[in-house]
Design a protein around this nucleic acid. Structure first.
Lengths: 341, 341
DNA sequence: GATGCTTACCCAATCGATTGGGTTGTTGGA
DNA sequence: TCCAACAACCCAATCGATTGGGTAAGCATC
């Protein structure tokens, strides 16, 4: 508990060594290597004494010093569009957890999906000498990623994927298909999609999964029934307005690639005097904690957000260990609720 | 742009010094001290050459080395209950921004409001040698804080306050009062409060502000009309259920100290066949981006979340500079919408 | 009795930046 | 002409942990 010496400094390896009358390097080797005495560095008895004293003095190694020497910080940098996006916040919780289990700490920054900010934040992270990056704001054009590759920075993607780079994502194409199957089986034939931002694979894949499956079921989706939008509530509302004012007859079902957009859409429907779940079905994506608790519970594709975050960390770890890693897609499931029942 | 030497290492002070034929210490002094040449360390011409070369080679100082020597990391640790709480996520955005402006980086961790986790995360942060902490999960009993004080760790609170410690919060008492005035003036006389977690000052202050003002207006609030709950949607729903099954007649207005709890309550009301804004008014707190966009737009007390985060950083900075700082409360405003109009 | 192998350590350089205390060379003033 | 003052640098120790290379003692083997 106390981690301070008499003169107010924190305890160092040398302090421990002096107190025991042995050399700091010996202490380092003992504390460094699991519980097995490393390379015959010390006797079992000495190792025990060292570990006891370290515990008693509350020794905690100085990461700057260690990092300076080893050139590794055990730090992972995480860049997300914004943590105020619940989906990313939850993935980050998974990331934090999994990283801690591996002895890494994480650093997050918000890029607002702005290329300029992405660069700046990446630079800050690298200036802090993170061992690797977890990128949650990848754009499909992939220019940031090419640069990272050129700089030989180890990184993996999370949430959004870009072909050719390692990533941990939801199987968004499958998610879209699940929604198509569901709405088709409920008898809908006139549907529209609130498609999200076209630079994000989440949006594109979910939309493509839906549209392709819909067409293979024999359905038709005119070009104007797919409306790109921001991922937030306001974006969903605007997109729904576009759909409702542009089309006659109204579609009987809406698929929003994001729960928040779906909530915005529900608001717009209500403003038009339409009842969600009766006049128009709505399905969202991610099954955020809100979905089930809304006044009209929202059908949504549940994606394993925590696991996606955890997986990203494991991929990055393996990358740092020199392995070659492949993209991972985790399987979503559909939760049907009142909004589309 | 390039930050690599021929042999693949990153550029160091010594590299720059060698290339210019001067001593590393001189380079350090030049780069270290703003644009004015420090203590006559070098001629203006040399300073110019050094800065040019540093830029050209993409020199970025190694923070481990600097930190090792100076014992400062320019790192602020941030502990929050959970980033998936939108309110904290937005405050963190403010924190990140303000910290970056001051040349600090930030580190966040989730404690889930669990004392055990709070300790663990605090220890991890201190092991990383952060210069100070921003605590977003303070409990009113203040035991964690006493320990931090004993350890002489510089810290400030954010979002929640605890008497006797520096903090940046919303004036939650005032917020509660605003709601009381509003509902009273709308003619309500039978109200209930979804009060949040009793260990959080946000919950306690908002509730107290409301109840005290209500009583001074001449209203009555029986003990069972104040229901403590979790801050999330499910918590709000449960609390509303308790209120609705326990009381006859139903209250005509609900004040939830958190927007998400309010949303949950709206769901419960609907399940009971009550229409929000007609049969029962609902007011939330924080005015998160969702509030205005809900199918039935939610009245809410707007708190300056970004500014609260920014203020916390400024307080911590002043603390680190040796100043003594006082708690700061930022003023909220009420946004009336359909749910209570 | 010499050689070789363990065991249990020690030594010293190293990572990159910082900083208190020099050391030159030049200029101005007395 | 001499000294003080200054400008413009250099030197070397230091922060704390890591790590490649010792070494000395003890034992077994041939």
């Amino acid at each position: 508990m106390k981690e301070i010496t008499a003169d107010g400094r924190t305890v160092t390896l040398k302090d421990l060594a002096n107190e025991l009358g042995i050399h700091p390097s010996t202490v380092s080797r003992i504390l460094h290597s699991g519980s097995d005495v490393a390379r015959g560095a010390a006797s079992v008895a000495t190792a025990e004494r060292v570990r006891d004293l370290a515990r008693k003095r509350g020794y905690s190694p100085n990461p700057q010093a260690a990092g300076l020497r080893t050139r590794r910080t055990r730090l992972m940098g995480v860049i997300v569009p914004r943590l105020s996006d619940l989906v990313l916040a939850i993935m980050y919780e998974g990331i934090e957890e999994a990283a801690a289990e591996l002895g890494y700490s994480t650093f997050v920054m918000n890029s607002r999906d702005d290329p300029e900010e992405q660069r700046r934040k990446t630079d800050t992270m690298l200036a802090r000498r993170v061992d690797g990056l977890i990128i949650g704001d990848a754009h499909l054009d992939g220019s940031q990623l090419r640069e990272l590759t050129a700089r030989k920075v180890p990184f993996v993607l999370v949430n959004r994927r870009v072909p050719g780079y390692p990533s941990a994502t939801c199987d968004d194409v499958l998610g879209g298909q699940l929604v198509a199957d569901h709405l088709w089986s409920k008898g809908h034939r006139n549907v529209a999609v609130i498609a999200g931002e076209p630079y994000a694979s989440t949006a594109v894949d979910r939309t493509a999964g839906f549209v392709d499956r819909w067409q293979s079921l024999g359905g038709k989706i005119p070009r104007e029934a797919v409306v790109w939008s921001r991922f937030d509530t306001a974006g969903g509302r605007e997109a729904a307005e576009t759909i409702l004012t542009g089309r006659n007859p109204y579609p009987t079902a809406l698929f929003a690639v994001n729960d928040f957009a779906a909530i915005g859409a529900m608001g717009a429907l209500r403003s038009h005097g339409l009842t969600v779940g009766e006049d128009v079905s709505v399905v969202g994506f991610n099954d955020t904690s809100l979905a089930a608790e809304l006044p009209i519970p929202l059908s949504s594709v549940r994606s394993p957000m925590l696991d996606i975050g955890r997986t990203a960390v494991q991929l990055l770890k393996r990358l740092l260990d020199g392995e070659i890693v492949e993209p991972v897609r985790l399987e979503p499931t559909l939760c049907v609720r009142e909004s589309s029942a």
